[in-house]
Amino acid sequence: MIYFLCFILFSIGLYSILTKRNLIKIIIGISIVDYAINLFFILVGYRMNGRSPILEKGEEIERIVDPLPQAVVLTSIVIGLAVTALLVAIAIRIYEKYGTFDINEIKELKG
């Protein structure tokens, strides 16, 4: 049931990518989509009353959550950071050349 929250978050990000005209808002939308998918992966690996997947003295190993989605999501977060940094750099260069973030006013980019 809680998975639907992830899809709602994903829809919010997709909405902002499709409808907003400001480049910075589009980048924020891409980040929201990214984190919605990360949250979904973490929720897939969760189990009720689970604890963190770190072995400690006196703790039963059957109760830990699945470590594999967490490892995958750690990779995904770093890739998302790299993509966001690159997108922001491109947006800064576009602003230097055209003086605006509005994608409607950047006429040379229209196909």
């Binding site: 890739i79 690159l86 260069r93 230097e96």
Partner: peptide, 19 residues
């Protein structure tokens, strides 16, 4: 993953470094 991060940072430096 580290290589992807390195490539992205190279792209950022190439885009912003000479402006």
């Amino acid at each position: 993953e580290v290589t992807v991060l390195f490539l992205a940072i190279t792209g950022v430096i190439a885009l912003l470094g000479k402006s």
